Amino acid sequence: MAHTVTDRKKLLNRVKRIKGQSIALENTLENEPDCMAVLQQVAAIKGAVNGLMKEVLEGHLREHLGAEDLSKDQRLEEVEQVISILKSYLK
């Protein structure tokens, strides 16, 4: 996946932010957690993961499905793979 290689630094920064948010949530839960603080952290993590998914998915669609050299069968296979991932992600 060339787009994940060219955007590696940006994607890794997003992952590091998600990691930091997860650690903050863990720390909150280890203390005497306030419900609102927990909810806020969970919402932040979800938003960060959604942003990461959007970036990778957009790159994949542009680079792979947008490729002009794909045969019809290859394009259909790519579409099915993306649909499968989206179904799993959106459960």
Rank of each mutant, 00 (worst) to 15 (best):
R62F: 08
V82Y: 07
S71F: 01
K10N: 09
E32H: 12
G66T: 05
T4S: 08
Q21P: 02
A2T: 11
D73C: 00
A48I: 08
R14S: 08
R62H: 12
L70K: 11
K19M: 05
A24I: 02
L90W: 07
T4V: 14
E77N: 06
T28R: 03
L57T: 15
L86T: 08
Q81V: 06
L12I: 15
E30V: 01
R17V: 03
K91L: 11
K9N: 05
E63T: 10
R8F: 12
G51Y: 04
I85Y: 04
T4N: 07
R14V: 02
D73A: 14
Q41H: 14
K16Y: 09
T4I: 14
E78P: 00
A67L: 06
T6H: 06
M36Y: 09
V42N: 06
L65Y: 01
E58F: 02
K19E: 15
N13S: 10
L39I: 01
I45G: 04
E63R: 02
D34V: 07
Q74E: 12
E78A: 07
E77Y: 02
L76P: 01
A24H: 04
L25C: 04
R75S: 12
V15R: 13
R8M: 07
C35M: 05
M53I: 10
E80D: 14
G66L: 05
M1G: 10
L12E: 15
Q41G: 12
L29C: 13
A2Y: 11
L86A: 13
S22C: 15
D69K: 03
K91F: 06
K16C: 02
S22K: 03
D7Q: 14
A48D: 10
L61V: 15
L25P: 02
E32T: 11
V79L: 15
D34E: 10
D73M: 07
G20S: 08
T28Q: 10
M36V: 07
R8N: 12
V38D: 04
K87W: 06
V38A: 09
I18W: 09
V5L: 13
K46W: 00
K16I: 03
V5F: 08
K72R: 10
A37Q: 11
K46Y: 05
V49D: 01
G59A: 03
R62G: 00
A43H: 12
L57N: 11
D73H: 02
L86C: 08
E55F: 01
E58Y: 02
G59N: 04
K9S: 06
L25S: 03
L25Q: 07
T28C: 13
L11Q: 06
N50E: 15
R62M: 08
I83S: 09
P33S: 07
Q40I: 01
E26D: 10
D34I: 08
K46E: 09
K19D: 13
I23C: 00
V56H: 07
E78S: 06
H3A: 03
L12T: 14
E80N: 15
V15M: 15
L52M: 11
R17L: 03
E58I: 01
M1A: 13
N31H: 08
Q74S: 07
E58A: 02
Q74H: 02
Q81P: 00
L29Q: 14
E80K: 15
T28I: 10
E32W: 08
M1T: 06
V42Y: 02
Q41C: 04
Q40S: 14
L11D: 03
N50P: 01
